[in-house]
Structures are given as C-alpha cells and as structure tokens.
Simulated assay, not measured.
Amino acid sequence: MRTAYQYKLRPTKLQAIEIDRWLSMLCAQYNYLLADRFNWYEQNRSPVNACPLICYLPELRDAPDYYSQKKKLPQLKKSHPWYAKIYSQVLQDVVKRVKVTFDRFLKGDSNGKCSGRPRFKSRSRYRTFTYPQIKGECLQDNLINLPMFGKVKVILHRSIPHGFKLKTVSITKKADGYYVTLSLEDLTVPTIKPDFDPNKITGIDVGLKEFLTTSEGETVTIPQPYRKAQKRLRVIQKRVARRKKGSSRRQKAVKQLGCQHKKVADKRKDFHFKTAKYLLNKYEVIAVEDLNVKGLARTRVAKSVLDAGWSSFLSILTNKAVNAGLLVVPVSAHNTSQDCSNCGEKVPKKVHKRWHECAHCGCSIDRDQNAAINIKNRAVGHLGFK
C-alpha cells in the first residue's frame, strides 16, 4: 500500500532562492525535451493516403524516447555546467515526466483515453521536482537531508508510522510557501473484513441542498467554501486585473489571490477528510452513487457541484475505507430519486420537489433519504446480504 504525507518546509532565504533556481532550470529542460519530441513527431509523420509529392526531408534519426533522452544528460552537464549542481535522478525524473505526458497524448492512459496535446510550461506553472529514490534516514530531528541540496527544516506535525518505507520525496512550491511530500510504502496490506454487521451498512446520497443524506435520515450540512469566499476573491481579482502586467505589485496581488484560493481548497479538503472519518467510524459498508461528476460540472449548477467536490470526497472515502479494511460500494445512480424505496414503483418528480410521496403504498419521506435507501438496497442486493 502506498500513501503520501505532506509537510511544510521552512527553508532559509538562500535555500528558497536555490529551490527556485532548480525549478527554473528543470522547467527549461522539460520544455527542451518536449520540443525535441514534437520536432521529430511533426517531421516524420504523414498521412498514408495524402503524402505530398514535394516535401521537406528531415535528418533521419530514431524517435526520441526515454532512454535516448536520458543518455544526453551527461552531455548536457558538460555543455551547461550549471546543470551539474542538480542531483542526477532529479534530472532523470524530468525525462520521465516528458515520456508520461507524451505517451498519454499518443497512446492514451490505461483506459485508452488520450489526453490533449502537451503544453510547454511557463516558469510559474512548473512547481515540483522529485527525488525518485532516497534513503529512509534522510529525515531526522525536524530536518530533511536532500542529496546535493542540503538539510532543510521541516515542520513534522505528525510522525511517520512505524514500519513504513520511504520511497520518493517531492518538493513543491505553492502560493504560501514550500512543501515536501513523502511517498511511503507499507508492506502490510489490509484485508477486507470477511463478514460485515448488517446493522452497520448504509447508503449515502450526495446533493446540493445537504452535502449528504444517509439512509437513516442523518444529514451533513454542505459548507460551500468557495461561495463564502467569493466576495473576498472578487476584491483580490480586481486588484490583479488593475495592476500592470510584469510589475512587482501585480506579482504580490497574484500571490495573494493564490493564497486565498488555496485557503478555500484546504477548507474543502479538511471537510472531506473529517466527514469520511465520521462515516467510517460509524459504518462498515457504505453504498454510494457512481456519479458522472464531469458531466454534472457542465450543467447550470456547475459552480455548486465543483464547490461541493463530490469526486474528491468519494475518492478520499474509498481510500480511507481500503486502509481500514472496510468497503465502499458504488452502485448505479439511475432513478434512485424516482423509485419508491418501500414498494419499488416509479414516482416521477421534478428537481424542485424535495418530498417523496408514493401513491401506491403511501410512503412519505424526504426525497434524499428515499434515494439513500434505494442506494443501500442496491448495494445489499449486489453483495448478496439478506
């Protein structure tokens, strides 16, 4: 099992300047390697049924790949000596990032879905570099020892669990400072419980009126961190728009805007983790809807959907359940609000109608709780519980 712990760094002024210098050089190398791949791709591809009679013949060479580009790094350090001060594996990780993004553009991901054309990164958009391999003893006494960089102070707000093995270290520059992300591996894989208590199974229906409603009728209020921060964000955004591009005052305003957006994201993430922990402490099996959040984010309620962060919450809930040996069961979301949870008959209702009343069996219940019960019943049938 792999997990990640993130801590705040407290570098000195000289160390902060050095981190920025590394990021600047790695960004330039990333763009150069990506351009090399694009040059070969554009010059050596031609439609089979539309080959031009007169065309430019480029210099014949093999397609640049991960290994050929990595072999050029020693020559890079000779021609550009300042790159020799960067740890070799950090440079190799840049080559890997180019390979991954270009392969997704041409071949697609594991599901066969191709991403868009990779973009060259500006200096402000290249924020992370990674040590792919690092010794577990690098973290001692609130200091992390980074190869060819030195010791940097880190705020250990929580200790690393015993038995976890350190795999990779990533340094990230965010709006409010620098962070280190430790990728940890635990060889003891938790097993799913063989038998579950039927009384500790629930279904949850996520919504925009309440963040979620359980099949027992319990609700969790939606926090809406973005909508509550909109007034403040509007003021700072105007400040950014009115200042001259390239000026130091504009850079300060942009940083202030980034800090405010990060604050909103942190509030949402904290709410998701606390809600997931509360549910997993109370239930052993949680049934959820298999939602198409990307599709919902293109509708008229897109701002509210993205502010709620359903996709992020369900991902956190699933990961935490796996770590605890519990189960999160996704079920079809089709007609969960329309079907009666008592008799199964379809009771059509529009979105604004928030109360479910069945004319066939007389069931009268909140619309969201009715949907949550349907979700629970579908999960119980899927798992084969009685």
Results as ranks from 00 to 15, higher is better:
residue 172 T to F: 08
residue 187 L to P: 01
residue 169 V to N: 03
residue 184 L to N: 00
residue 193 K to S: 13
residue 183 S to K: 00
residue 185 E to L: 04
residue 170 S to A: 14
residue 194 P to A: 10
residue 194 P to M: 09
residue 180 V to I: 15
residue 180 V to A: 12
residue 167 K to W: 12
residue 190 P to A: 11
residue 195 D to Q: 15
residue 186 D to I: 04
residue 169 V to K: 06
residue 166 L to N: 01
residue 196 F to D: 00
residue 193 K to V: 05
residue 175 A to R: 05
residue 185 E to M: 11
residue 191 T to V: 09
residue 182 L to H: 02
residue 186 D to A: 07
residue 174 K to S: 11
residue 195 D to I: 13
residue 172 T to C: 15
residue 190 P to L: 11
residue 179 Y to S: 00
residue 168 T to H: 05
residue 184 L to A: 00
residue 191 T to H: 14
residue 191 T to C: 08
residue 180 V to G: 04
residue 175 A to Q: 07
residue 181 T to M: 12
residue 187 L to K: 07
residue 179 Y to N: 04
residue 178 Y to L: 06
residue 178 Y to N: 02
residue 191 T to W: 09
residue 186 D to V: 02
residue 174 K to L: 12
residue 170 S to C: 10
residue 188 T to W: 08
residue 168 T to E: 15
residue 172 T to H: 13
residue 167 K to R: 14
residue 191 T to G: 09
residue 180 V to S: 10
residue 180 V to Y: 08
residue 191 T to S: 09
residue 192 I to D: 04
residue 166 L to F: 05
residue 171 I to E: 11
residue 186 D to G: 04
residue 169 V to H: 10
residue 171 I to H: 04
residue 181 T to P: 06
residue 191 T to D: 12
residue 173 K to Y: 08
residue 174 K to W: 05
residue 177 G to E: 12
residue 175 A to P: 03
residue 166 L to G: 00
residue 171 I to K: 10
residue 172 T to M: 15
residue 186 D to P: 05
residue 188 T to D: 14
residue 190 P to M: 14
residue 192 I to E: 12
residue 185 E to P: 00
residue 170 S to L: 07
residue 174 K to M: 05
residue 192 I to W: 07
residue 187 L to V: 14
residue 189 V to L: 15
residue 184 L to H: 02
residue 177 G to I: 13
residue 179 Y to V: 00
residue 187 L to Y: 11
residue 166 L to S: 03
residue 167 K to G: 00
residue 168 T to V: 05
residue 189 V to W: 07
residue 173 K to C: 06
residue 188 T to P: 03
residue 192 I to Q: 07
residue 172 T to R: 14
residue 166 L to M: 11
residue 167 K to N: 05
residue 195 D to E: 08
residue 185 E to N: 09
residue 168 T to Q: 12
residue 183 S to F: 00
residue 167 K to D: 06
residue 189 V to F: 04
residue 186 D to S: 09
residue 170 S to T: 13
residue 192 I to K: 02
residue 181 T to W: 15
residue 174 K to Y: 06
residue 187 L to S: 11
residue 182 L to K: 03
residue 170 S to R: 15
residue 177 G to A: 09
residue 189 V to M: 13
residue 194 P to Y: 09
residue 188 T to A: 12
residue 191 T to M: 07
residue 194 P to C: 10
residue 166 L to R: 02
residue 182 L to C: 03
residue 194 P to I: 12
residue 171 I to F: 03
residue 185 E to F: 02
residue 175 A to C: 08
residue 176 D to Q: 07
residue 182 L to Y: 01
residue 196 F to Q: 04
residue 180 V to E: 05
residue 167 K to T: 11
residue 186 D to K: 10
residue 188 T to R: 13
residue 188 T to Y: 09
residue 187 L to G: 11
residue 178 Y to E: 07
residue 176 D to G: 14
residue 185 E to G: 01
residue 176 D to I: 13
residue 184 L to M: 12
residue 181 T to E: 12
residue 188 T to V: 15
residue 193 K to F: 04
residue 189 V to K: 13
